[in-house]
């Protein structure tokens, strides 16, 4: 067992964990933060994307022990302080950027990382940045549109609205 201490969504947590415990298991099983999802076992689908020290990473491909001392943010910590949806979350709702919701936490976390580094990404840049996030429901149309809208861009001319 290894002792790990980290900050998750602003709260300090300390736990004794197995050496082989993944961050997904740590969040879901130990902290009961089940918003971080597991959709594959080859590090490709992105349903588990979280932020570790401000960087988007796949929680299924990282051990809890690797987050020692880190600041971790998950989908559960993304809403505004008053509980309302943040800008990205709100844009996903406004532009129907989700259907079954399973990939959605990873999409929101990835989008947040993108917009922090690139506040006005082009359509191509968004599609490129989403390479590691698979959605089977939306055909990506409304996800890309939502991210453009969340960055303050006018999406009214985009096809099909």
């Amino acid at each position: 067992m290894t002792k790990v201490t980290m900050t998750v969504n602003g709260k300090t947590v300390a736990k004794e964990v197995r050496g082989n415990m993944l961050m997904t298991e740590f969040l879901r099983d130990e902290l009961h933060l089940t918003g971080t999802h597991v959709g594959c076992d080859t590090s490709q689908c992105g349903a588990c994307v979280i932020h570790v020290n401000g960087q988007d990473v796949k929680a299924c491909t990282m051990f809890a022990g690797e987050a020692e001392g880190a600041e971790v943010a998950t989908i559960e910590g993304m809403a505004n302080a008053d509980g309302s949806l943040n800008t990205i979350q709100q844009a996903f709702q406004d532009y129907h950027g989700l259907q079954c919701g399973f990939c959605t936490p990873g999409m929101v976390m990835t989008a947040a990382a993108l917009l922090r580094d690139n506040p006005k990404p082009s359509e191509t840049e968004i599609r490129d940045y989403l390479e590691g996030n698979i959605c089977r429901c939306t055909g990506y149309h409304n996800i890309v549109k939502a991210i453009m809208a969340a960055s303050g861009q006018d999406v009214s001319a985009i096809a099909a609205e």
Partner: peptide, 9 residues
């Protein structure tokens, strides 16, 4: 290489 999350690790 890979995707952004992979590149961060």
């Amino acid at each position: 290489i890979g995707d952004p999350a992979v590149r961060n690790r």
